[in-house]
Nucleic acid binder design. Structure first.
Lengths: 118, 118
DNA sequence: CACGTATATGTCTAATAGGGTATATAAAAA
DNA sequence: TTTTTATATACCCTATTAGACATATACGTG
């Protein structure tokens, strides 16, 4: 259970994170919404907490869990080099689509950038 | 081994992907650079191929492996909602830093946006 | 054809993780 | 103080997975 990816590999954990993105939740809240047993929720929360994905505060008997940003940023950082790679692919796709457009209407010059970029 | 995250959970597989981001590589190339046994490399490549992370072409006895973009885009898409969340946190951090600046020089009005956005 | 090279696959094993049930802890409510 | 509510943890069991080693397959070369 080293990397952030190990943590995210577990579907229930991803589900929990998905819940927490809207607002903080107690263990019981999560338990009900995801239909998991309470010990299972607690265990996953423990893993998430130790990996820095979530933190908790005490509210009487409840613990309120909320997201922490760092590990997500790690994933994003890991993705960066590949993002460069795949946007190259998207550009190729665009050029391909442009070419198809031009084949339908050959009068249009192939000056590029006819499609809008994101 | 359902989701893209299961695939990425394995460190050797991430290493392989890291190699392939620069250019395509044969199994032997990967084996040498990562110091893994050949069967191990082949098995991980199989997993990666079946998950759509890589594809291969035949070059005599060699197989050349290269990246495919789709699964990376999936990860990026999964990250999107959380990205909104963590950029909110970055904004909060910025506000905090601005406030610290202002405490050093209280004459500066707290009109915000004194730091440049990315 | 025999041999070397490159890759894939099969088998076995050890390690690990996740779920279930029971139980411990702690705080609120009666 | 007893009981109830909320959460954490311990223990056991099972399934999955990665790696090592052996072997199969396929192509090229002498």
């Amino acid at each position: 259970m080293e990397s952030v990816f190990d943590i995210l590999a577990e579907p229930n954990r991803r589900a929990i994170l998905g819940l927490l993105v809207s607002s903080q939740q107690s263990v019981g809240d999560i338990e009900r919404q995801l239909q998991m047993t309470q010990p299972t929720v607690s265990k996953h929360l423990r893993v998430l907490r130790e990996a820095g994905f979530v933190e908790s505060t005490v509210d009487a008997q409840r613990r309120l869990y909320r997201l922490k940003p760092e590990p997500f940023q790690q994933v994003d950082a890991w993705l960066a080099p590949f993002r460069r790679f795949w946007s190259a692919h998207l550009d190729a796709l665009e050029r391909h689509l442009d070419r198809m457009d031009n084949e339908k209407d050959p009068s249009t010059p192939t000056k590029g950038k006819t499609r809008k970029r994101r």
